[in-house]
Design a protein around this nucleic acid. Structure first.
Lengths: 105, 105
DNA sequence: TGGTTGGTGAAGCATGAGCTTAAGTATCGC
DNA sequence: GCGATACTTAAGCTCATGCTTCACCAACCA
């Protein structure tokens, strides 16, 4: 999942898909690379659950699936919150220590 | 940044650092790998701005820096929101297409 | 019907990521 | 001072990743 978002090209594809569904060729258009390469990136994104695709006739249409994005967002925000809460506690503790220091000794 | 979080070992380190600062050796303890390898992971995390470290005497202490986490969170949530807003506008239509495709043909 | 378009699949190649070993440096405790 | 501790640095090895080429199939359309 993070693996999938690690590549700049794939992030750009996600970016593109934010603006609406696209066929494989449309998705490949802004890139220099081969259609083959694009399809491989697409496979990674799909494997990570970031993108869903369906083929109609000979054209495969891709769109974002926000489930995985949600999961990633949650992972990050949980950890951030955890650390920041800890930091607050530490801050309070240090402040208290300070008070005691300045006061007692 | 996403690159840095792409590796499971590094995510585990981040996890560990959520619970408080740690020295390099402490951080390395749960892993099978060499201290060297851990330091290399640490360098990646630090390079991504996820971790800050300072060396006192001969021990280097590491702690989370939530700035980068915040940035990642923002990137994801912006894109998710963008797509979901779009989905709301187009949603009924696309969903209907989906149903017809998957069901009828 | 046959050419063009849109995508698929496999093979191969170059680079980089993740790890190890090994040797080195700076501190700490005795 | 001297050995142990806590890293640091460099080199090398292996396997995964990102890409290309090429052959191929399937649908569209003139």
């Amino acid at each position: 999942m993070f693996q999938a978002l690690a590549d700049p090209n794939r992030r750009q594809m996600v970016q593109r898909l934010c603006e609406g569904p696209a066929s494989v060729s449309e998705l490949a258009q802004p890139f220099q690379m081969t259609l083959s390469a694009v399809v491989q990136h697409l496979a990674v994104l799909e494997g990570a659950g970031l993108v869903r695709t369906q083929k109609i006739g000979r054209v495969r249409t891709c769109q974002l699936d926000t489930q995985a994005l949600r999961a990633a967002e949650r992972w990050i925000s949980e950890r951030r919150a955890l650390w920041e809460r800890r930091f607050d506690r530490l801050g309070a503790f240090l402040a208290e220590q300070d008070v005691k220091e300045g006061d007692g000794a």
